[in-house]
Structure formats: structure tokens, C-alpha cells
């Protein structure tokens, strides 16, 4: 962990440990003409723990490794260094929108396939279909090809089928910004229902306010490292202040550059 990392770790909760990342790093080879001899480092010695019933938020700018971290937790990718351990018999899975959607097929067919991909048997998946139709509010369009859907209808179908995932550790990646305002509210309420229950959730989002509302603990990732970890309000406020500061610095740098150009032009003209 880097020296500038501010880890305000709260006292470990008295609940069973569900998942642990221990100095996890992930890097991969890219094309030869990139820096670092073609090795791209996504995560760099990240350590964290998830306890039963936790709602852990992960925040950070684009490309800092949030989604990769979820993929490692879901077992999709393996760390190139470090260790990941999940409590015996527990499962972790990503809440995934639009699994295997084929535009030529109906919403019903696509929902059936998505439910099966998430681990349901054909029979269980068929039993979910009416529930999916009702929650997604697609009505008769549920029987129409998905290629005729608007972006909002697509998102509604995607979120509803994803909600069928039943795992011990639910990994959520930016899915609550779906559909129109009405459906977003409904999606958030459904998610809150899960979170206030026993469900253990790891939640990635750009939306700082949403993270504050939903999460008890937050990890702030920056350039593949844990920058800060702790109480959600404290970490999110620090992150927002950092985002504001870097934005201001960017504006200031832009202003200085413009002034330099202006001066150079004046000198050339004078």
C-alpha cells in the first residue's frame, strides 16, 4: 500500500468474514508499443475484507480498477499476485445487465436465457418470467423482439432479469442509473430491499450520494490502489473534495496555458 494511502479502517465488525482480498494485484500484457514494456497494471496490492451483511461501496474515477476488482471477487479473473478467499460454501456473482441479449429474439426469450445464465434451471427460469414481465412494466412488448425496444425498455428488462441473481455476495456495478426517473426509483427501492435484508453487497458507483445512502463502508480506489477506506460519509466527502480539487486544478492549468498562448501571440504581434 502506498505511503499517501489514508486507511481509516473502522474496527472489524463482529460478523463472519465473507470475502477477503489480500495484497491483490492484476496486470496484463498489452501491445508492445505501450509503456512499462507492455505491462498494464490495473490493481496494485489491494487488500480489503467484506463481512456478512455488509454493504460495501467502491468509488473512484473511471479506469482506476473498480470493475476489475469486482471481476476478481466474482471469480471471473484471477489476481496475478496476492490472494482472494471466499468463506466456504459462499458464492459471489456480478449483477449483470443484458446477459446474452439477442436483438432478434423477444424479451421473454432473452429473459429466459439470462436467468439460465445466472444459474437457474430451465424450469426455475420459466417460473421467473411472469415476475420479470410485471416488474419491468414491458406489457405486450415482452413478446416483441428486443431490437424494437427503446434504450429505456432495454434497461428495464436488463435490470429486472439481473435482479433474479440469488447469491451470498452480490456485486453491483453501476446498475442503478437505468431507465427513466420512475423506473430508477423502483430499481433503487428493489436494491434497498435487498441491502436492508441479510444480503452482502459490494457496490460500485460514480454517484457519490447513492453510495452514501446505500453503503455503510466505502473504499476509495485510485490508480489501482486503496486511497482511503472507512465510514461512507467520511470517505465519500474526502473523494468529492478530491474530485473538486483536481477539477479546479485542471481549470487553473487550462487558464494558465491560455494566458501563455495569449502572451506569446501578443509578443509575436508586437
Amino acid at each position: 500500500m502506498s505511503k499517501d494511502t489514508d486507511t481509516t479502517v473502522a474496527k472489524a465488525p463482529e460478523r463472519p468474514l465473507m470475502l477477503e482480498l489480500d495484497s491483490v494485484s492484476l496486470s496484463f500484457n498489452t501491445s508492445r508499443d505501450t509503456f512499462d514494456h507492455g505491462v498494464h497494471r490495473v490493481l496494485d496490492e489491494v487488500s480489503m475484507k467484506v463481512y456478512e451483511g455488509d454493504t460495501l461501496g467502491i468509488i473512484g474515477r473511471n479506469g482506476v480498477g473498480k470493475t476489475t476488482m469486482l471481476r476478481i471477487m466474482a471469480g471471473i479473473l484471477a489476481p496475478t499476485a496476492g490472494r482472494i478467499s471466499i468463506a466456504p460454501g459462499k458464492t459471489a456473482s456480478l449483477l449483470s445487465l443484458g446477459l446474452g441479449f439477442k436483438p432478434e429474439l423477444s424479451g421473454r426469450d432473452n429473459a429466459l436465457l439470462a436467468a439460465m445464465l445466472q444459474g437457474s434451471s430451465r424450469k426455475q427460469a420459466q417460473a421467473f418470467l411472469e415476475e420479470i414481465k410485471e416488474f419491468s412494466e414491458l406489457g405486450d412488448s415482452f413478446e416483441e423482439p428486443v431490437k424494437t425496444y427503446s434504450a429505456g425498455m432495454n434497461a428495464r428488462l436488463g435490470f429486472t432479469t439481473a435482479l433474479m441473481t440469488h447469491v451470498d455476495i452480490l456485486l453491483v456495478d453501476e446498475v442503478l442509473s437505468v431507465g427513466d426517473a420512475h423506473f430508477r426509483g423502483k430499481a433503487l427501492a428493489a436494491m434497498q430491499d435487498r441491502i436492508t435484508g441479510d444480503q452482502t453487497v459490494v457496490f460500485v458507483s460514480h454517484m457519490a450520494d447513492q453510495v452514501k445512502t446505500l453503503c455503510s463502508r466505502v473504499i476509495w480506489l485510485d490508480e489501482g490502489k486503496v486511497k482511503q477506506e472507512g465510514d461512507s460519509v467520511e470517505v465519500v466527502d474526502a473523494y468529492q473534495a478530491y474530485v473538486h480539487r483536481t477539477r479546479q486544478e485542471g481549470i487553473e492549468q487550462q487558464r494558465l496555458k491560455q494566458e501563455q498562448v495569449k502572451k506569446a501571440l501578443e509578443q509575436a504581434a508586437g
Binding site: 471481476r71 466474482a74 471471473i76 456473482s93 456480478l94 449483470s96 446477459l99 446474452g100 445464465l117 445466472q118
Partner: peptide, 9 residues
């Protein structure tokens, strides 16, 4: 790869 990015299958 679209499915692979979301599911451990």
C-alpha cells in the same frame, strides 16, 4: 467476451 466479462462460467 460480453458474457465472460460478467459471469464466471
Amino acid at each position: 467476451k460480453g458474457l465472460i466479462s460478467k459471469l464466471n462460467i
